[in-house]
Design a binder for these strands. Structure first.
Lengths: 192, 192
DNA sequence: GAGCTAACCAAGCAAGCGCTAGTGTGAATG
DNA sequence: CATTCACACTAGCGCTTGCTTGGTTAGCTC
């Protein structure tokens, strides 16, 4: 019916939707609320998105793609040793909270509201992000930098990491850089 | 209008509601679905609960009270040394997932759906539980068992811990006892 | 056996929901 | 100048929602 490409207009609408989804939750956010936030009428919304679910998928896709891009960039521009790479990943993760916090909160809390297709599609994106972490964790384990069961360590780290969205203020006193260092130090066996 | 005490019937209804809230999410669970699951008609539901929100509050309160009780018991019946206490807390946390997983998932994901009063009330319960953890973590820090910033360590641990609800199967191969040990070992500086 | 009460039911109301159909409009395109 | 297109609007359909109302029933107590 309508054009569903990713126009700049659609990107902006997605950003505003993310904000509302965080404030109210996906189910409680009505298309009328979304439209009002966007400065249009509720009917016009369906010119940009097929249905309400697609807005949710767009929000999560946007956030995850950015996180992936930032993580990739961080890994490419850091030292090769396992500790530097761990820190780079942690810093990258905290940095995305600066620009895409809303999207990440939505991804964390509203994932189950996605329909099967969107979940499958976005699942791959998410897996790619987690695979980056697991690779870096594997390197750190192999180097003896951290210790413990591979499966457990990665769940543990993922949990701690995802939880940051609940308490970390990227505009507060501690920089992503600094916090990433401390987070990694906590995991490591003390040197010397 | 009706009696809102905590009758055994109400406890049972609360347990069933928790299951549905996990499956569908709070907002998507209609009073009609709840009633059907309970084997009554939707109108009858309001004999037991003032409104839908109160069911959510009941679910979370039940789960948190149990977690607190189990944690207290675990701390009272374990050795005094910091490592034993950390392990006891971790084991207790994983044990509650055996009996109250639904309630904990609901507490984690649907907390924001609570109205202000319920949130304040249940917030104190939750704080009490987290305070137990923080005390034990403080002891471990003071004893040099683990290292790092007090604030960060506790957030990190809380995150990893709350995340367990997403992957840990208490009826699987690893017992809560065993997993608690591994989780604590991961945090600790290696001995000897 | 009258009175009370917890537990339930049938019926439905008012409000709100996602979404559609059909139309208007100003700018770009041929 | 005619056509197309992106974008927005108005109006409302069909349905579901949380919750209320007014009444019934089975079991208990005095």
């Amino acid at each position: 019916m309508n054009v569903m490409n990713d126009s700049p207009r659609r990107k902006e609408l997605t950003r505003q939707a993310a904000q509302l989804f965080v404030q109210e939750g996906f189910d409680r956010t009505t298309v009328r609320m979304l439209a009002e936030e966007m400065g249009i009428k509720s009917g016009s919304l369906f010119h940009h998105f097929r249905d309400k679910q697609e807005i949710l998928a767009a929000v999560i896709e946007e956030g995850t793609r950015n996180a992936l891009a930032i993580a990739h960039a961080a890994l490419e521009s850091c030292d090769r040793d396992p500790q530097a790479r761990l820190q780079a990943m942690a810093r990258a993760h905290l940095e995305t909270l600066l620009t895409d916090r809303n999207a990440h909160v939505v991804a964390l809390y509203e994932w189950r509201r996605l329909d099967d297709d969107a979940r499958a599609h976005l699942g791959h994106l998410r897996d790619a992000y987690e695979a980056l972490w697991e690779a870096v964790i594997d390197e750190a384990l192999a180097a003896g930098l951290i210790h413990g069961d591979r499966f457990l360590v990665s769940r543990f780290v993922m949990g701690a990491l995802n939880w940051t969205v609940r308490w970390y203020d990227p505009e507060g006193e501690r920089s992503p850089e600094e916090l990433g260092r401390e987070l990694v130090a906590m995991l490591m066996a003390p040197r010397g």
